[in-house]
Amino acid sequence: MSTNEIGSVSAAVSLTVNGTKVEREVAVRTSLADFLREDLRLTGTHLGCEHGVCGACTVLLDGAAVRSCLMLAVQADGTVVTTIEGLAAPDGTLSPLQQSFMDHHGFQCAFCAPGFILTAQTLIDRGQSLSRDDLRSEISGNLCRCTGYASILDSIEAAITDALGPLIDTSGASK
């Protein structure tokens, strides 16, 4: 589409998804989320609200977390996309973050899981020091209706601690 397909209702897109080059013709009104779920059958990306609030559809686009419901597939042309299916090793070994979520009973129904895991992955990738409150704030764009978030925070905190060292301790700080 980069050449001259101006004014189209469908377009060819070429992108890398979980390390695999993908080329498809898509209707331009197709969201990235629906493209992943329906055209590529990567149904790990979930649609919770389709208006950009709940975060369940979060994927990594060139390494940054984005809402795949608020993006057209055609806008992802030329990008590198990582979905929840792209985190575990090919032999099925969970990523450290996924393993931490298992160890800490991170989720219940887990419909929100892909969004939380990918959002949390960017925190590890960015390598910034965070406090527990920072962590709350960083994941506040993702809704979970089951857990009350404590187990999600515990899971992420443990994975960050393993990867980057302990969180910043603010427990002694005054209000």
């Binding site: 589409m1 209702v9 969201s31």
Partner: peptide, 21 residues
Amino acid sequence: MKFPGFVYHRPTSLDEAVELI
């Protein structure tokens, strides 16, 4: 909640974009 249909344009130069709009 799917996007309604539209025609998609992706200009690469400002002149082209402004002309389209």
